[in-house]
Design a protein around this nucleic acid. Structure first.
Length: 900
DNA sequence: CTGCCGACGTAC
DNA sequence: GACGTACGTCGGCAGT
């Protein structure tokens, strides 16, 4: 199939000018202007996508003088000099066009118009349909049967009829027309007093320029006089406005076939331009070709293991190695369903191999049998004395577990090494670590498998490509370990934290993930149904109240109704400057109008439905019949775990509907759910870290700490503290741990700022140790650039000395919070290890299912609940020795709500 | 249609 | 500007 226009000729100088004025004035990080180049490249790309020509000419003006200047010294004389920031963009544009393989034409002393005219004429003679792309109206004269014009200014495609319609004259009269009316952009004046209208009228009356000249004597009034005065000039003007179609060129249209792009060169140009858009497209179009920018990567020759002999050799190497890296490749990221596709190993830098086991694509080579290979590897993988390193081994652990292998001898995990070194790093992913610590550009997963809709599963990747990728992963993991571990070792507390807490936690978390939790999908479905009805009723009511229909889930539309149509006051704005419709704002507005309350109710129910009652049943694993979360050990800045897919750390609890969702988390028949949660652990840690006498005393004597705080601040006896007073004290206690200000406290407890400030003052008078502790933490953060937990985990605070007040204040709040939140995280991790130790040694009918920051949830056989609970309590309460007791509340029941 | 971001809301 | 740590859903928008 041939393109509609086999030849496309682009007036590139015009494109560049247009882009320069239309596109944003971008500047890259080197201070170079880039907007016009990027704009032109995007327009060209779009054009070629649209027309897909066989031949292509990107034509630039050569600059310098041409025949028109010789005829008419004033030609284009009024043009201001090129702005420097436009001039600077010619070179990168040329480089990009050449790298694209697009034929670029610049003829010395010839204007782009004449080059285009000549090529179009030659093409027409050869029967090749041509599209001229230009915003210059001169070009209209070239239009004919075979030649059409894409007017980039108006984005219209013009044939001869279109030209007549647009300009009022056919293509062959365009030059006459321009000669008469002039062309200010070229400094051609034409006939004084003769504009568009007059020129068209004359041409209509007398046919062409010669006709006008012949009848010049008959034209009345001043304009007639002007015409007669200009008569000697008109042939010259006609020459200037006529495009030359016979200039000497060293190329003909059929020479203009685009060639293959030079991807590396293109990438270099695009990177310099810092255009994510262009780079992204380049990546998409060149998945296989894409290599990092200069210098080209020296790819290492890794082993691809396809025969038993090769495997034997590598098995011996692994057995002999003091430490080896392992990495599994699978069909997906869900450890409950992903299939093992291959496994890679590294025994020393650059010495790595990939064993493809289950690649399935047309023509895939015969591979070693997965079961056989795994059986041979099993003794090695399960031997605790054979040291292994990996990147996020919890994943590999879970995958191997599904094939009956218990990975032991986990000596290192580079994900966790990176995390303990700097929990605030933007990424602990292998690609980022390789770049950061080894200055090595890894092959990315997207490079081999694509992404988005085009993504394929790893078993579809060719074994050769997969081998390069997978073996490199093992190689880099090993090298990262060699670089990272000494850095951790240099800080003994971090080394302990890593070896004694984080690494041993891997199999514990892996087990919890694979165990999952039983869900009563039926009750959730029933709940969803009810919620749908209540939501519909609220929606109807809200629309009636508002007087029109709108999307209750759209803060933007809500804002329109509340603040524009109903004229309610804007309480607060979002960081982006839009009126906020957040919960506390609507709560205030509810006093003035019934609609905000309806929105609030709708929001809370919609949240429960979409996030929980609808979503959770869909995520139940088909084979286990249970819900499996993923725990992330290297995400939070403070050392907490996080949970996703689904997040089981934010299951509702506060409202009745929320608790009903918790009731859908159930125990298997014959079992109970047991929930054990630390009572006030962060406040206890604050007491311990601060050594504050009164706080220590309150916890030491087992008082209700919030009540005690209220009594202290208000100087009341404990028993006369009201519920309201206790609530305020609780808000202070929590607020303190978050570094809250008087303003924040006032907002929280609904009092004025002065009262809040007075409460806080009174608090710090009574709890002097806490006040001193907070100041000490700020000092420590400023001096060290980090703060520590009780166990030496560090949180780096690079903005603690920031010049911007609010940035610095934010860092100070993190400094205050992190030691408490982080110590609590350390303690519950220690408890999890202790409980796991007990489970492994005693083999009680107990499974640890969930961790929710200060709570552990277990599934325990009915008759073991009491004794197991006692063991769990001891393990948790003795997980750390503080100057206050750690207290654990334990409950049990058929579901998670009852267990509380 | 896909991907990204901001707003919002759930938990501790 | 103002309360720390997370994750998921939605709307809206840009780009495909």
């Amino acid at each position: 199939m041939s393109a509609q226009y086999p030849l496309v000729l682009v007036d590139a100088s015009g494109y560049l000018f247009r882009a320069y004025h239309a596109a944003p004035k971008l500047i890259n990080s080197h201070g170079e202007p880039t907007g016009a180049v990027i704009g032109v490249l995007q327009m060209l790309q779009k054009l070629l996508d649209d027309y897909q020509p066989d031949y292509l000419g990107i034509v630039f003006d050569a600059g310098g003088k041409n025949f028109r200047h010789a005829l008419f010294p004033a030609y284009k004389a009024q043009r201001p000099p090129l702005p420097n920031d436009l001039r600077a963009q010619f070179a990168p544009l040329r480089a990009a066009i050449e790298a694209q393989g697009w034929p670029l034409i610049i003829v010395p002393d010839v204007e782009a118009d004449d080059v285009i005219g000549t090529l179009a004429t030659q093409a027409a003679a050869a029967g090749i349909a041509t599209l001229i792309v230009s915003g210059d109206k001169d070009m209209a004269q070239l239009v004919g049967d075979q030649v059409h014009l894409l007017d980039t200014m108006k984005n219209r495609l013009l044939d001869a009829a279109g030209v007549t319609e647009t300009f009022g004259v056919p293509p062959e009269r365009i030059a006459d027309y321009l000669a008469l009316r002039g062309d200010s952009s070229d400094n051609i004046s034409g006939v004084s007093g003769c504009g568009e209208k007059t020129a068209l009228e004359w041409l209509r009356k007398y046919g062409d320029l010669n006709g006008v000249i012949a009848h010049a004597h008959a034209i009345p009034r001043k304009v007639g006089e002007n015409l007669r005065a200009a008569l000697p000039q008109l042939p010259l003007l006609r020459q200037l406005t006529t495009i030359q179609c016979d200039v000497a060129l060293n190329r003909c249209p059929t020479d203009l076939r685009p060639t293959a792009p030079n991807v590396a060169a293109l990438r270099a140009v695009f990177e310099r331009l810092e255009s994510r858009h262009l780079l992204k497209r380049l990546v998409l179009l060149n998945l296989d070709l894409l290599a990092p920018a200069a210098p080209p990567p020296p790819r290492i020759a890794y082993d691809l293991i396809l025969t038993p002999e090769q495997f034997e050799t590598w098995l011996a190497r692994l057995t002999a190695a003091e430490l080896f890296a392992i990495d599994t490749e699978t069909t997906g990221l869900d450890v409950m369903t992903a299939e093992l596709v291959g496994v890679s190993f590294a025994v020393a830098p650059k010495q790595a191999a990939y064993i493809p086991l289950a690649h399935r694509y047309f023509d895939a080579p015969a591979q070693l049998n997965r079961a056989t290979v795994l059986a041979q590897l099993q003794p090695l993988l399960e031997d605790p004395n054979r040291a292994k390193v990996g990147q996020n081994l919890k994943f590999d652990f879970n995958i191997l577990a599904r094939y009956g292998i218990t990975l032991r001898g986990i000596a290192h995990d580079t994900l966790l090494t990176s995390y303990v070194l700097d929990s605030t790093a933007t990424s602990h992913g292998m690609d980022a670590l390789a770049k950061k610590y080894l200055d090595y550009a890894t092959i990315h997963f997207e490079d081999v498998a694509g992404k988005g809709a085009k993504q394929i599963t790893f078993d579809q990747v060719t074994v050769e490509t997969a081998g390069q990728y997978a073996a490199e992963d093992a190689d880099i993991t090993l090298r990262l370990q060699q670089t990272l571990w000494p850095r951790v070792q240099a800080i003994p507390a971090l080394a302990r934290l890593y070896r004694e807490l984080e690494l041993p936690l891997i199999p514990v978390l892996a087990r919890m993930e694979r165990t999952g939790v039983k869900i009563d999908s039926h009750s959730l479905a029933q709940h969803s149904h009810e919620l749908a009805q209540r939501l519909a009723a609220l929606e109807l009511n809200a629309h009636e109240t508002a007087g029109r229909s709108f999307n209750l889930a759209s803060p933007k539309q809500i804002g329109m109704i509340l603040f524009e149509e109903l004229g309610l006051p804007v309480v607060r704005k979002t960081p982006k400057g839009e009126p906020s419709t957040a919960e506390d704002v609507l709560e205030q507005l509810a006093a003035e109008h019934p609609l905000p309350r309806l929105i609030l109710d709708h929001r809370s129910l919609a949240k429960l439905k979409s996030t929980y009652t609808d979503a959770l049943p869909k995520l139940v694993n088909a084979s286990s019949g249970r819900l499996h979360t993923s725990y992330h050990q290297a995400v939070t800045a403070t050392g907490r775990l996080s949970s996703s897919d689904p997040n089981l750390q934010n299951i509702p609890i506060r409202t009745e509907d929320g608790r009903r969702i918790r009731r859908a988390f159930i125990a298997a028949p014959g079992f109970q759910l047991v929930s054990a949660d630390y009572s006030q652990i962060e406040l206890r840690i604050m007491a311990h870290l601060s050594g504050d006498e009164r706080l220590l005393a309150a916890f030491g004597s087992g008082l209700d700490v919030h009540r005690a705080t209220a009594a202290e601040i208000l100087q009341l006896p404990l028993e006369s503290v009201t519920t309201e007073q206790r609530r305020a004290a609780k808000a202070i206690n929590f607020g303190l741990m978050y570094g809250m200000s008087a303003f924040g406290l006032a907002q929280q407890i609904g009092c004025n700022k002065r009262d809040a400030a007075e409460y806080m003052e009174r608090y710090f008078e009574r709890y002097v140790g806490v006040k001193e502790f907070m100041e000490r933490i700020r000092q420590e953060a400023r001096a060290n650039g980090y703060v520590e937990t009780l166990f030496g985990r560090r949180l780096h605070l690079i903005e603690i000395n920031h010049s911007n007040q609010s940035r610095r204040a934010a860092a100070e709040r993190m400094a205050i919070n992190a030691p408490m939140q982080g110590t609590a995280a350390d303690i519950i991790k220690r408890a999890m290890l202790a409980v796991n130790q007990w489970i492994e040694s005693e083999q009680p009918p107990v499974q640890m299912l969930l961790q929710v920051h200060d709570e552990l949830v277990f599934e325990i056989a009915n008759d073991a609940v009491t004794t197991a609970s006692a063991h769990i309590r001891i393990a948790m309460e003795t997980a750390a020795e503080l100057t206050v007791p750690l207290v654990v509340d334990i409950g049990h029941g058929n579901n998670w709500d009852e267990a509380h």
